[in-house]
Amino acid sequence: METPSQRRATRSGAQASSTPLSPTRITRLQEKEDLQELNDRLAVYIDRVRSLETENAGLRLRITESEEVVSREVSGIKAAYEAELGDARKTLDSVAKERARLQLELSKVREEFKELKARNTKKEGDLIAAQARLKDLEALLNSKEAALSTALSEKRTLEGELHDLRGQVAKLEAALGEAKKQLQDEMLRRVDAENRLQTMKEELDFQKNIYSEELRETKRRHETRLVEIDNGKQREFESRLADALQELRAQHEDQVEQYKKELEKTYSAKLDNARQSAERNSNLVGAAHEELQQSRIRIDSLSAQLSQLQKQLAAKEAKLRDLEDSLARERDTSRRLLAEKEREMAEMRARMQQQLDEYQELLDIKLALDMEIHAYRKLLEGEEERLRLSPSPTSQRSRGRASSHSSQTQGGGSVTKKRKLESTESRSSFSQHARTSGRVAVEEVDEEGKFVRLRNKSNEDQSMGNWQIKRQNGDDPLLTYRFPPKFTLKAGQVVTIWAAGAGATHSPPTDL
């Protein structure tokens, strides 16, 4: 069977082979063929449309019947899901209200924590001031004790010197008594010597008188005998007598002179000795008097100093007792304040721990409710997609609110971060928990396990030699990294520990 286009092609070929045509004729024939082709295509399209309309009418009838069946089946399910969705919305509203209440309680707890922290800071300042005052008082007490020990040692030294001076005074008084006794003995010996000298002088005078009498008696006897002796021998006898008398007189005078000289010499020697002894004793007595006077003056001065030191010692002891009493009071006050502060800190920690436990429990309940609501929403969306139902505006708002919801909680030295990733086909969620104590904190952990970043959050360098970082993902083997023995993380510095297959460059001390 030939198509209209094939017939047109045969006809035009025959005409062209029979007679030659002009260009205008050819153009018109071409346009006519195009119109015929378009008409044929339109006829085919109309036939196809008619057949499709016939099929569409049958399909519409089948769809109508199916919609009636589906509407009867879905009406009950939709009512049940609407009821469950209403319950879920009520639960979500109650959870939102509970969350708002918990946020209010958390803000209240934070305000109480700030207030307690301020009070604690003030108490710590008072405690530091009390400890500083206690240290000052202890230093003052130590200085006073040192001064007291010095004063006591000086007192003992002065008492020793006073005892020595008293012994010296006793010795000097004994020496003075001995000197006085020697002086009295010398004076007695001097008086005795003077008496003996006077006696010797009297004896000498008496001997002179006796010698004169004997001489006169001898002259008288000789004169008497001379009268009786011969005149011839008188001159010879007289001359001999005169010579004998002269010789006797000379001898007697020599003896008297020698005895006189010896007596005067002895007397002068004894007198000089007595005078020297008297002068020496008088000098000793003067020196003893002077030394005794000086000793008395020094004793008086030392007694005055001793009394002054005793007064100072009594004042120091009184002040020391006052300082000890004040120190005891300060210690009791400090202990009482410290006990009160520790009790308040313990109560505050217990209260904060209780509130944190309650908040953690409520947060766990909220997370469980969020997971249940998310599961209900997934089931509802799956059924709506299976039944090709359009979601209600309320469910769209709930989905938008659930997809944009995120929370971040800080308290008790722990930080909890939650992130949620969404897509049109599926939804997944993960959470990161970080707890830090000390100078070094974990700043970031790569989700794909490529690196771990640490930061020194203090103002001092931290030695991290032979420290270890351990990481384990589920049931995978435990991964451990040990820092070099001499590694030190500077204040405020960040160090990144890269995985072996991350392709990073080893560049200490920032990249390991």
Results as ranks from 00 to 15, higher is better:
Arg221Asp: 07
Lys233Tyr: 02
Glu236Thr: 10
Lys201Asn: 06
Arg225Val: 09
Lys201His: 15
Glu236Leu: 08
Ala250Thr: 12
Tyr211Ala: 15
Glu264Cys: 15
Gln258Cys: 11
Glu262Val: 03
Glu178Asn: 14
Lys260Phe: 11
Glu262Gln: 11
Leu226Lys: 11
Ala179Gln: 10
Leu245Pro: 03
Thr199Trp: 02
Tyr267Trp: 07
Glu214Ser: 04
Thr218Phe: 12
Glu236Tyr: 01
Gln207Thr: 13
Leu245Val: 02
Glu264Asn: 15
Glu223Met: 11
Asp185Asn: 10
Ala242Asp: 07
Arg240Ser: 08
Ile229Thr: 07
Glu178Leu: 15
Glu214Thr: 14
Arg196Gln: 06
Leu204Tyr: 14
Glu228Phe: 09
Lys260Ala: 00
Gln182Ile: 04
Asp230Arg: 12
Lys233Met: 08
Leu263Ser: 09
Ala250Ser: 03
Arg216Lys: 13
Lys261Gly: 12
Leu241Glu: 08
Asp230Trp: 00
Asp272Phe: 13
Glu213Trp: 05
Gln255Asp: 11
Asn273Leu: 08
Glu203Asn: 02
Ile229Ser: 10
Lys181Cys: 14
Ala269Cys: 11
Arg240Cys: 09
Leu271Phe: 06
Asn209Ala: 14
Asn195Met: 04
Lys219Asn: 09
Ala193Thr: 13
Gln234Val: 13
Tyr259Glu: 04
Asp230Ala: 05
Arg221Phe: 15
Arg216Met: 03
Leu188Ser: 03
Glu178Ala: 05
Asp205Ala: 02
Leu226Thr: 13
Ser212Phe: 05
Arg221Asn: 09
Arg221Pro: 13
Asn273Lys: 05
Leu197Pro: 04
Asp254Met: 13
Leu183Trp: 10
Phe237Trp: 11
Glu217Gly: 06
Lys261His: 12
Gln198Lys: 10
Ser239Thr: 05
Arg235Ile: 15
Glu238His: 10
Gln184Ser: 14
Thr218Val: 09
Ala242Cys: 01
Ala193Val: 14
Leu183Ile: 12
Ser268Gln: 13
Lys208Gly: 00
Leu215Phe: 14
Glu253Ile: 05
Met200Glu: 02
Tyr259Ile: 06
Arg216Ile: 05
Asn231Leu: 11
Val256Gly: 01
Gln198Asp: 01
Gln251Phe: 01
Lys261Met: 14
Leu215Thr: 10
Asp205Ile: 02
Arg190Gln: 07
Arg196Glu: 03
Glu236Asn: 06
Ala179Tyr: 15
Leu183Val: 05
Gly232Tyr: 09
Arg220Tyr: 14
Lys180His: 12
Tyr259Arg: 07
Asp272Leu: 14
Phe237Met: 15
Ile229Asn: 12
Leu197Glu: 03
Met200Asn: 09
Lys233Thr: 14
Glu253Phe: 10
Lys219Gly: 11
Leu188Trp: 05
Glu236Lys: 00
Ser268Arg: 15
Leu263Phe: 02
Ser239Met: 13
Glu202Ile: 02
Gly232Asn: 08
His222Asn: 13
Phe206Arg: 03
Asp192Pro: 01
Glu262Gly: 15
Asp272Val: 15
Arg240Gln: 09
Asp230Pro: 06
Tyr211Pro: 05
Arg190Asn: 09
Glu213Phe: 05
Leu248Tyr: 10
Met187Thr: 14
Gln182Val: 12
Lys260Tyr: 01
Glu238Arg: 11
Leu263Thr: 02
Phe237Asn: 04
Asn231Met: 00
Ala193Gly: 00
Glu253Arg: 13
Gln184Cys: 03
His222Lys: 00
Asp205His: 05
Leu245His: 02
Asn273Tyr: 07
Glu194Leu: 11
Glu223Tyr: 06
Arg190Lys: 13
Lys233Cys: 14
Glu238Gly: 06
Lys219Glu: 08
Leu188Ala: 03
Leu215Pro: 03
Ile229Pro: 01
Ala269Glu: 08
Lys265Ala: 11
Ala250Leu: 01
Glu194Asn: 10
Gln246Trp: 10
Met200Pro: 04
Ile210Cys: 01
Asn273Gly: 00
Glu213Gly: 12
Leu188Arg: 00
Arg235Ser: 09
Leu204Met: 15
Ala250Gly: 15
Lys265Leu: 04
Arg240Met: 05
Asn273Cys: 01
Arg216Phe: 06
Glu257Met: 12
Lys219Ser: 06
Glu264Trp: 15
Asn231Thr: 10
His252Arg: 10
Glu228Ala: 09
Tyr211Lys: 11
Glu202Phe: 05
Asp205Arg: 06
Asn209Glu: 01
Ser239Cys: 15
Leu188Asn: 02
Gln246His: 15
Ala244His: 07
Lys219Pro: 04
Leu226Trp: 02
Lys180Gly: 00
Leu215Ile: 15
Leu263Cys: 08
Thr224Tyr: 05
Ala250Lys: 13
Asn209Gly: 02
Val256Lys: 02
Asn209Ile: 00
Gln251Val: 10
Ala269Gly: 15
Gly232Arg: 04
Asp243Met: 02
Asp205Cys: 12
